[in-house]
Design a protein around this nucleic acid. Structure first.
Length: 406
DNA sequence: CCGCCACCTGCGCC
DNA sequence: AGGCGCAGGTGGC
C-alpha cells in the first residue's frame, strides 16, 4: 500500500477559468490562514498530503506530495471515507474544497442583478470562492481570530500545527504539519503551553473547546451540524434526527467557549457548508453602514439584534449563498487588496486632478477609520474639505477603550 | 436583555 | 524611542 502511494510528484491540471476561481484572492482574503506562497506556488497541507497550486487563465494546476511514511495511523481518514486507498483522490478533494460544481459566474450575475453595490465592486474581485474547510480547523482558527489581525492569526495557526500537528512532509528544510486533531489538544498542559506560544486569552478557549469537542460532545457532533445539501453531499452520516438547519448549527456552536455569533457564522460558512451564513465583523458592519444604510436604529452599540439584522438583510438581497457574496465585498474592502481600488479610482481622479492619488487615498482612509472608530456615541460629522467629502457617522461599532494607567 | 469593560500580543504609526 | 491604538470578538458582570 505504501509503495503505491510513494511516487515522484508531478503537476496535474484542472480546467477552471479565472472568473470561476481566483486562488490569489481566495487564499489571501482571510478565510484560511495556512496557505503560503512557496516558489510561486500556493502550498498547504490538506487531508494528509501536501498540496501546491498554481493558476493560468484556463487551468488550476496542482501538485501532490504524499508523506514519506504512511500516516494512516496518525491522521484520521476523511469523514467521507475516501481516504488513502492507494489511488489519488486529490482532484476530487480539490473539487470539493473549492466547490467547483457551483457556477460562480451565474451567482455573480444574480448578486449583481439584485444589488447595485455588488455590481460596482465585484468586477475587480472575480473568482472569490468560499473554501470548504475542515470544520474543526475552521472552529479553532476563528477562535484565534477574535480581536486579532490576519498576520498574527496566521502565525498562531502555524504554531498550533507546528507544535501539535503531525508532520506531513518537508519543503526545503522546513517541516510541514497538518492541523492538530481535537484529541491532540486535550492535554493538561495545553493551555499554559499555548499561552507561552503567544495565544493570549485564546489559549483557554482553544483548550476548553478541544476538551469539550473530543470528550463531552457526542462523536461526530461537529459533522452532524453540516449542511447536508451542500454540493450534493447527501448525508451518509447519521440518522435524520441528527441533521440540522443553519440556525440550529449556529446555536449549537455558541455553546462552545470562545465562540460568539461571528465565529459561529465563520464555522457555519467555511467549515459546515452553510452558504447563507453571513459572519458580521467590524469590516462587514462598516460596509453595512457605509453602503447599505445601516446604523439608523436607537441602539448605541452593536448588539445581537443588529448582528442578526445585518445578516438577514444580506440574505434578503443575495439569497441562499449570501455568505459567498459577502466574502467578495469583504475581500474588496481588505487593506491588502487596496491597490486594486486605487488603480480604479486613479483613472477617475486623474481626469479631475493631477495630485498624488495614492497619498490622497491613504489619507482619506485614515481619516475615515479615525472618524468611525474614535467617535463616541454621539452623531458626528466630519467635513473633509480637501476631498470635499462629508462623512456622517451615526454610531460606533465599538467604543474605544481607555487604557488604564498602572 | 442591554451596555460596559477586560482580555493577550505584536505591529505600525507618530 | 517609547507608547499608544488597533486588529475579521467574546465572556462576565
Amino acid at each position: 500500500m505504501a509503495m503505491a502511494i510513494k511516487r515522484a510528484s508531478e503537476w496535474h491540471k484542472l480546467p477552471v477559468t479565472f472568473s470561476e476561481l481566483c486562488i490569489d484572492t481566495t487564499l489571501r482574503c482571510g478565510q484560511s490562514f495556512r496557505w503560503r506562497k512557496v516558489n510561486d506556488a500556493w502550498t498547504c497541507t490538506l487531508h494528509g498530503r501536501i498540496l501546491s497550486l498554481k493558476q493560468d487563465p484556463e487551468h488550476l494546476h496542482y501538485k501532490v506530495t504524499w508523506p514519506e511514511t504512511p500516516l494512516a495511523t496518525l491522521v484520521p481518514p476523511p469523514s467521507n471515507g475516501a481516504g488513502l486507498q492507494g489511488q489519488d483522490d486529490t482532484e476530487e478533494l480539490l473539487r470539493r474544497y473549492f466547490s467547483l460544481s457551483l457556477d460562480l459566474g451565474a451567482l455573480y450575475k444574480q448578486w449583481s442583478g439584485a444589488d447595485a453595490n455588488f455590481r460596482k465592486r465585484a468586477p475587480e474581485f472575480a473568482g472569490v470562492r468560499i473554501l470548504s474547510q475542515d470544520a474543526w480547523e475552521a472552529l479553532v482558527c476563528f477562535i484565534c481570530s477574535s480581536n486579532n489581525n490576519i498576520s498574527r492569526i496566521s502565525q498562531m495557526v502555524h504554531k498550533l500545527c507546528k507544535h501539535y500537528g503531525p508532520v506531513i512532509g518537508h519543503v526545503g528544510d522546513e517541516a510541514l504539519h497538518d492541523f492538530p486533531t481535537p484529541d491532540s489538544l486535550t492535554g493538561k498542559q495545553v493551555e499554559s503551553r499555548l499561552r507561552e506560544l503567544g495565544f493570549g486569552y485564546r489559549a483557554k478557549y482553544i483548550a476548553e473547546t478541544a476538551r469539550v469537542v473530543a470528550q463531552e460532545k457526542p462523536p461526530l457532533w461537529l459533522e452532524s451540524l453540516r449542511n447536508p445539501e451542500h454540493q450534493g453531499l447527501q448525508s451518509r452520516s447519521g440518522p435524520e434526527s441528527l441533521k440540522s438547519t443553519y440556525k440550529e448549527a449556529h446555536e449549537a456552536l455558541l455553546s462552545l467557549t470562545g465562540v460568539g455569533p461571528k465565529v459561529a457564522d465563520c464555522v457555519c460558512l467555511m467549515g459546515l457548508g452553510w452558504g447563507e451564513s453571513v459572519p458580521v465583523d467590524t469590516h462587514v458592519w462598516q460596509i453595512a453602514q457605509r453602503d447599505y444604510k445601516f446604523g439608523k436604529t436607537k441602539s448605541k452599540t452593536f448588539n445581537k439584534a443588529m448582528y442578526d439584522a445585518v445578516g438577514d438583510h444580506f440574505r434578503g438581497i443575495w439569497g441562499q449563498y449570501a455568505g459567498w457574496a459577502h466574502s467578495v465585498l469583504f475581500a474588496a474592502d481588505l487593506r491588502e487588496f487596496s491597490d486594486r481600488k486605487v488603480k480604479k479610482e486613479d483613472v477617475q481622479r486623474l481626469v479631475e486632478t493631477q495630485t498624488s492619488v495614492i497619498e490622497d487615498e491613504a489619507a482619506t482612509r485614515r481619516r475615515k477609520r479615525s472618524a468611525t472608530l474614535k467617535t463616541v456615541t454621539t452623531e458626528v460629522k466630519v467635513d473633509d474639505t480637501k476631498d470635499g467629502v462629508l462623512l456622517e457617522v451615526d454610531r460606533v461599532f465599538k467604543r474605544r477603550r481607555t487604557r488604564q494607567r498602572p
